[in-house]
Amino acid sequence: MTEPAREKIVVTNDTKFLSVVRDFVANQTQTNNIAPDSANKIILAVDEAVANIIEHAYEEQITGTIEIETEISETRFKISIRDSGKKFRPDSVETPNMTEHVKSGKKKGLGIFLMRQIMDEVRYVFKEGIQNELVLVKYLRTG
């Protein structure tokens, strides 16, 4: 069995870097021959996770970093996203009622829901005094 392929990128907490993050993940999916349909969804899930960190983890005007590490094996695509901002538990976010969401004119709050819809695992780990780590896993069809 071959070792999983690992790559890493670090960006600052600015939405202008979302395209850089998407390109990074897209390159990993291409290098590892991930089917386009799965690839597009993985890219979106990572975009949602990073956009969420940019919006919630750091106070305005504070520059912080976000590390995105991919680990790809024959059976799964794992992405670990780390930041040193505020603690945030995605599992505390309830599934939205879309009709209510539309009625209230709310524009935000769908990223976590989308991440859960796409990925097979969404795990959050808070490492005291160090950082937040969000782990996203998509199982890959083999054979």
């Binding site: 975009d47 949602e48 956009a51 969401h101 539309v102 004119g105 524009k107 990223g111 829901f113």
Partner: peptide
């Protein structure tokens, strides 16, 4: 490409 932030524009304005 569209993410939830983009879809949110339509969700927030259709009402």
């Amino acid at each position: 490409y569209i993410s939830s932030a983009g879809a949110g524009v339509f969700i927030g304005n259709i009402g």
